[in-house]
């Protein structure tokens, strides 16, 4: 009897290339997207996390300047917003690579041998969890269960899910990404 859940191909978001990470003002587009969230909540302060997510989507990470710009715009103390920013693991308070690897090492993935695969990534990219590779392409993060345990071991790279991982498929995924980014930089 087969499972009803078979994986699908997912569209991937394209990150903007220009580095705006330390701009002290929010762009018109960032403001427009944050404004759209206001009507969903009782007060402006409640939009804090959504606003950080929006700004991070445009800038790649949340610098001190970005944090200040959001706190000014929402009219909440920056210390309060910092408390939120540092609590959530998908808000990045330091620069990350173009591809963030969310590596699942929850129970099911561990049983299926994810420790060996994590060692493979660390050795291949010469980084430990929380670090970014020297070429600035990959950041490795450990994540709570990604909810695909029947296809363990799994990881996410950017917004793509990769399932039933092996050492060979990890090599392929990383090499493909490297090639793609090398092509882009020579365009």
């Amino acid at each position: 009897m087969s499972s009803v859940f078979e994986p699908e191909v997912v569209e991937v978001m394209d990150f903007s290339k220009a580095d705006r990470s330390t701009e002290t003002q929010l762009s018109a587009e960032e403001k427009r997207e944050i404004d759209a969230e206001f009507s969903h909540y009782e007060d402006k302060a409640s939009v804090g996390l959504e606003a950080l997510r929006i700004v991070q989507k445009h800038r790649g990470w949340i610098s001190d300047q970005s944090l200040q710009a959001v706190s000014d715009y929402l009219d909440i103390p920056s210390a309060q917003l910092e408390g939120v920013a540092t609590f959530f693991q998908l808000i990045f308070r330091q620069p990350v690579g173009k591809e963030v690897i969310l590596f699942c090492k929850s129970a099911s993935c561990w049983i299926m041998g994810c420790a060996r695969l994590q060692a493979r990534i660390e050795q291949k990219l010469q980084i430990a969890p929380g670090q970014t590779s020297g070429d600035g392409i990959f950041t490795l993060l450990e994540t709570p269960c990604l909810g695909d345990c029947d296809k363990a071991p799994v990881m996410m790279v950017g917004e793509e899910m990769h399932r039933n991982l092996t050492e060979q498929s990890i090599d392929e995924i990383i090499d493909n990404k490297k090639r793609r980014h090398a092509d882009e930089s020579t365009d």
Partner: peptide, 9 residues
């Protein structure tokens, strides 16, 4: 999930 023949939902 785990080392069964046919993991699934």
């Amino acid at each position: 999930s785990g080392k069964v023949k046919n993991p699934g939902t």
